[in-house]
Structures are given as C-alpha cells and as structure tokens.
Amino acid sequence: MQGKFISRRSFLQGIPVTAVGLPYILDAKTGQSGASDKGPILSNDFFAIYLHKETGRFSVHRTDGSILIPDCAAMAVSSDREVRPDMIEFRHRAEVSKISDALGEGKRLIIYSSAKNSPWAFTRSITLYKRYPGIFLDMSLINKSNVPVNIESLFVVTPAGNDTASLLWSGTSKVLTNGPMYYDPGTLYPFSAPDESTIQSWWNAGFFSGYKKEALVCGALENLKAQGKIHVRRLPGDAISLSLQSYLA
C-alpha cells in the first residue's frame, strides 16, 4: 500500500473530532451488532455503554443509535499464553461511580474479572465525561500467585471472536499515522477499500471520512511504562481492524 505525506494540521484542522482514548489495545474483524444486556449501564450525551455481565464484554453505541465499538473483550499476553477475562471460568463484578477531576465531571464503570483457579485478575475502567465526546479506557492486571509471570502485552479491547468487529467508522477513506519519534510526522494512507496489508502507527492514529464529517482519533492518552503501537487494516463495509497495543518491551 502506497502512502503520501500531508500536513497533520491540514488533515485535522476544522474537522469535528470524536476521541477514543485507549491506553492499550483494540482489534477488529467484520461488523456485527455486539452482545449487551437490555439497557446501557453508563451513558452521556454522546455515547452509551452496554455491558454483557456473563462475559464481561461491552459495546459502545452512539446516541444516534449507531454502533462504534461492538462486543469487545480484553486480553493479556504472557511469554507462554494468552488470557482473556471472557473465558468461561471468569466471573465479573461491575460498579458505576461519579467522578470529578481535571477533565470535569462524569461517570466511571469499573469491571472486575477473576477466576477461582486462575492467578490473573483484570480490572478495566470505562469513563465518560459530561462535556467530552470521547471514551476513556484503562486496564490493570494483577498476578494473585507467588509465581512470577512475564507479561508482554496488554489489550484493553480485543475482538470477541472470528468475523466480529471492534470498531465501525462509516466512510473512512484515509488514515493518518504517527511516527515513533518527534522528527517523523507519520504518513497519510488511502483507506477506502478492504486490504490485507496492515498499517502501523505509534501512540495514535486518525481516521478521515471527509472534510465535512467527523474524524476519529484513537490512541494512548498516557503510557509511561510501555510502547504504544497501533495496527490498522481495512475490512469490508465500515469495519476496521484496529489494534492499540501496550507492548512491555
């Protein structure tokens, strides 16, 4: 896939932006509606979060009824295994609380996932602020055993299975990447048709659908202990394979 350079300011200036702040990862295949319980567990003027209490997976809907992030789980990768909190042995507990910090007032959903015979315990948070059209996700992992575990990557969102999507963004025609260092401005790639090639970005990436339409920005808001990598691939329809990886190098 060939890319061409363009000014980042020219690309994003004047475009309404929906931000998805993901300190770790997202991945996608193709579109489906996603699993959820009857009503949203968390919402603001922009988004509604639906939680599937049996699996711990969640989906994000926009207030116009469209789906942004369908049926997504999480994952941790060690040197010898992959562990997901939606595995059948895990049980989940959720709580919602009001918050007030430097970004303003909002609500936070915390999902606790653990298994009786597993040393892995996941804590994931989803925060919605009243005045921000953004979704703020975070995840931590605890090793409950006395045996050291070599964690290589954390994924705050990953697809629930084959042929499912974890990001749907209508009419995406270009993707803007970011380079690994300050002197690398990144590349603007064509992104309107399905392609087997995977594009890599560092820390954040932007998705463009037209100068009079919203742009979507996904990336790490803060990651002081790992490298933030983003992998994107265009799938059929509006589905995008998007992985935001926190790689503990």
Rank of each mutant, 00 (worst) to 15 (best):
S43H: 14
S140F: 03
I126D: 10
G237Y: 07
I67E: 11
S201T: 08
F136N: 08
E196W: 07
I99W: 11
A48Y: 00
I110P: 00
K229L: 12
V96T: 14
N146K: 03
R234K: 15
F11A: 06
I67V: 10
G161M: 09
W169L: 02
S241A: 14
L176T: 02
T55G: 07
E196C: 05
E152R: 05
S36A: 14
T63N: 14
L42F: 11
E152D: 07
D238I: 00
E95A: 15
H52P: 02
G179H: 03
G65Q: 07
N117Y: 12
S241Q: 04
L109W: 11
A28P: 00
I88R: 09
Q245F: 00
D138N: 14
S113F: 01
D195W: 09
E152A: 00
F58N: 04
A102L: 14
F208G: 00
P180W: 14
A48P: 01
M75C: 13
S66V: 05
A74E: 07
T172H: 05
S7R: 01
L248P: 01
N150W: 13
S173P: 03
V175M: 09
N150T: 11
L22H: 04
T18D: 10
I69G: 01
L12A: 12
A165R: 02
S170M: 10
F5L: 15
L242F: 06
R8N: 12
M1G: 10
L137N: 10
V156Q: 06
K98C: 14
S173M: 08
F90G: 06
A239C: 07
L168Q: 05
K225G: 10
A19L: 13
A121Q: 10
S173F: 06
A215H: 06
N143F: 03
V20Y: 13
L51W: 11
V149W: 03
V156H: 05
G134Y: 04
G21H: 14
K225C: 08
P159C: 13
H61A: 07
S170R: 03
R233Q: 15
S153P: 02
H52W: 08
P85E: 11
L242K: 01
G210Q: 02
S153G: 03
V96M: 08
S97G: 09
E222L: 12
A102R: 15
V60K: 02
E89K: 04
T55N: 07
I142G: 04
D101S: 11
T127H: 10
G106Q: 07
A249I: 04
Y129N: 10
R131P: 03
K98P: 08
G21F: 06
K4F: 15
D163Q: 08
L216E: 03
N44L: 05
I151S: 01
S246R: 08
P159Q: 11
Q32L: 08
P23T: 06
S209Q: 12
F47K: 02
A74V: 12
D238A: 13
D238L: 01
F191T: 09
A19G: 00
L221C: 11
W202L: 05
S246V: 02
D64M: 11
G171W: 06
T63K: 15
T30W: 04
G179I: 09
D27R: 14
P159I: 05
P148I: 00
V217F: 06
N223D: 04
R234F: 00
G161R: 12
E89L: 02
I25F: 13
